[in-house]
Structures are given as structure tokens and as C-alpha cells.
Amino acid sequence: MAEARRMRAVELFEQGRSHAQIAGMLGVRPESVRRWKRQWEQGGATGRAPKLDDAQVEKVRAALEQGAQAHGFEAESWTLERVGLVVERGTGVKPARASVRRLLTGRLGWSQQRPQRRAVERDESEIARWVTHEWPRIKRGQ
């Protein structure tokens, strides 16, 4: 959200809007708008520079692609905490939870996945039989 606000401010800078107008439109303080404009004029960046450079991000990507168990975790699923530990071990940078989420979804292009939880005892053929034979009988009231 903050990044989108800063990008919108850049569009408004380019339209020639005043600091006060931009601040009012975006619901921020004029000091923030002045700081964003100064950063934009100095090189185009409007936000804080990322803590990880591109080489470090690629190092993290390679580590994550090895799988969670390769890094000593019992299950093969990644959590934000686990990814944060891998980032810290591999780069020396201890990221905040929100930074880990941005790294995964933004710079690495990964999406959030949730494993489907199913009972180990689940019997697909018995479920199919019940749906085709038992459920219609129950539905008819017999």
C-alpha cells in the first residue's frame, strides 16, 4: 500500500501538482511528499532501498528451491519464519516478517500456498460409493 501511494505521488509530480495537493490527495503529510520527491529526483527511487541485493535474492531463491528439509526442517513446507531463518543464515540479514512476505511475493514472484489437510485414513473409493448410493437414499428420506 505504501509503495502504491509513493508511485501515485510520482505520477502526480509528473503532472506538476504541488506538495500540498499531493499530500491532500494521498492523505499524507507534506513532509513525506517532499522527501519522496527529493528521492525521486535523485534517482527515481521513492522508497527505502531493499536490504538484499539481487545476488543475495538469487542466493535465497536457490536455497529455498532445495526444499525445507535440506535446511533441517521436519516438514517440506515453507513458513514465513522458516524463510526468514534461511535468509538470515544465507545473507546475515534478519528480515521482518512483512519483509519476508514481500521478498517471496514481490522479488521472487512466489504465491502463498496452503496445504490441503486430509485425514490419512481417507478412502476415496468409499467416499465415492457413499455419495452415489447412500446420499441419494438419505436425501429421498428412506
Rank of each mutant, 00 (worst) to 15 (best):
K51Y: 13
G24F: 07
T46D: 00
L52E: 09
R48Y: 04
V33W: 00
R29N: 14
I22E: 01
V28Y: 01
E58D: 11
D53W: 11
Q42I: 02
Q42G: 13
T46Y: 02
R34F: 02
I22V: 11
R38F: 02
D53T: 12
G27C: 05
G44Y: 04
K51D: 11
D53H: 15
R38Y: 02
K51A: 14
A55Q: 11
T46E: 01
Q42K: 09
G27I: 09
R34Y: 09
V33F: 00
R38L: 11
D53S: 10
T46Q: 00
K51P: 08
W40H: 11
A49G: 04
I22H: 03
Q56L: 13
Q42A: 14
W40P: 01
V28W: 03
I22Y: 04
E31C: 15
G27S: 06
G43N: 02
R34C: 00
W36S: 03
M25F: 05
A49M: 06
Q21S: 11
A55C: 04
V28L: 05
P30E: 10
A55F: 04
T46V: 03
Q56C: 08
G24M: 03
R35A: 11
A49N: 06
R35K: 08
Q42L: 08
R29C: 10
R38H: 06
P30A: 05
Q39W: 03
L52C: 12
A55R: 13
Q39N: 13
A49S: 10
E58N: 13
